[in-house]
Design a protein around this nucleic acid. Sequence first.
RNA 1: GCGCCCAUCGUCUAAUCGGUUAGGACAUCACCCUUUCACGGUGAAGAUUACGGGUUCGAGUCCCGUUGGGCGUGCCA
Length: 483
Amino acid sequence: MNSKIRVRYAPSPTGYIHIGNLRTALYNYLFARNTGGEFIVRIEDTDRTRYVPGAVENLINTLSWAGLDYDEGPEKGGAFAPYYQSERLSIYKEHADYLIKNKKAYYCFCTPERLSQLREEQKKINNDTRYDKHCLHLSEEEIQKNLADGVPYVIRLNVEKGIKIAFKDIVRGDVEFMSDIIDDQILIKSDGFPTYHLANIIDDHLMEVSHVIRGEEWLPSAPKHILLYQAFGWEPPLFAHLPLLLNPDRTKLSKRQGDVAVEDYKKKGYLKEALINFIALLGWTAGDDKEIYNFDELIKSFSLERVNDSGAVFDIEKLNWLNEEHLRAKPDSEIVVMLRDELQHTKYAKDDYTDEYLVNVIEAMKPRITFVKDIFEKAPYFFEEPETYEEASVKKGWKANSPDILKKFAEKISAIENPKKEDYEKAIADTATEMNVGKGNVIHPLRLATSGVSGGPGINDICYIIGKEKVEERIKRIIEKLG
RNA sequence: GCGCCCAUCGUCUAAUCGGUUAGGACAUCACCCUUUCACGGUGAAGAUUACGGGUUCGAGUCCCGUUGGGCGUGCCA
């Protein structure tokens, strides 16, 4: 084992980043940063049939959005370049040849047809579908002839039976497999590309990866990898198999039951702070009662030893709560930028608002929203006159004397230049006294007039934010409409 | 089928070397605050620690079994 801690995130460029994949990347990242180790990114693009153009760019963008900067990897390079497996083909070939020479692997000329037929037959017997080592027994002459004739071939690992493969997983403890259940894994495909199994162990070894931190779905192939390390005479890295992220029905998190792409959450308006905080806690805990973490705190407290070993259901409600918490913790200056961006996607895009105005709106709405964009939905009255008045509130709060009360209120504020919040408050109180009614008889109609709804920020805040002219206008308008 | 992994409130989880009224958070409900809605505060409800044995003075914690669930079983990763 290397003394230096080096971990890698090794995604396949098949499209979007799955949220579970982001968590794997995050744990690798946190572990590296916590221990002063190195975090590398390697692109596992050995399946040409699944390659999606633009996927790598998307991947890099998502990592960068999430704040997971890497020390070595695509675009950036590093001492162990290249970091695209498709550019390391000769390395894999060379190593596969070494295994052949040492009888650890062998050529297999079986056609896909024969293989599927074999599998069918085995299935009928006991579902144990394993290659029958047919080509292991080919003579040297036959092999050379096939090779010379250009017969398509793959290279398989020769797995001996009756061997116990044991290793210590950092999150799961001792794990044991018998080699009998392990197939003669294909190492090199007929197109000359390596399979994941071969490429990943060669690269991990060559890139001096010390800890392999990956999803639990890899646990069943771990013994294959150990066998490969042994075949090469290499010491395997340490393994940590992370618990899976689950749907509400406890199956592996999938697209059918909600959003799984990081991109989707970003689009919906989730803050990276909230998403990172949330997935960090899905399968890991520091052991105390702390729930809200910023990035640096996560780095400081993270440890692989405290990773949980059972799957975790992705609970959107808790994510929403964290988003609210992180939003409230965010400086207004940053939220303004986000709000302006969201503004572009609304019908108010062409309107002009000062930063000061938007900050006032944000201050008023911050405790009432989950996403920045909720502001437009929950408080459109900061951007346009109310079109209609909430029926239930009209029934409850709009009385016969409401027009007179609002007129009186309008008179009072018209006399004040640039009224402050306190001025509105006083005007409300004075109006109530003079009209000989409770303050509620002023507040509720006024709220209806200015916002059209019964909920929202304090009435003084609403009036102050939209300004005297708009308050007067809206009073006039509601009297016209409701009489 | 076979192999491996897993099992504490609905959900995420805590509980040194076995000794707690099994703790916290989200969600839910109630009250307080606010003449609104939220935020916030207080509190409630919610877990015979999947089940059954065993070891022990004592088990959520250790052992065995059962059940349930998940993952894997590709010339995918």
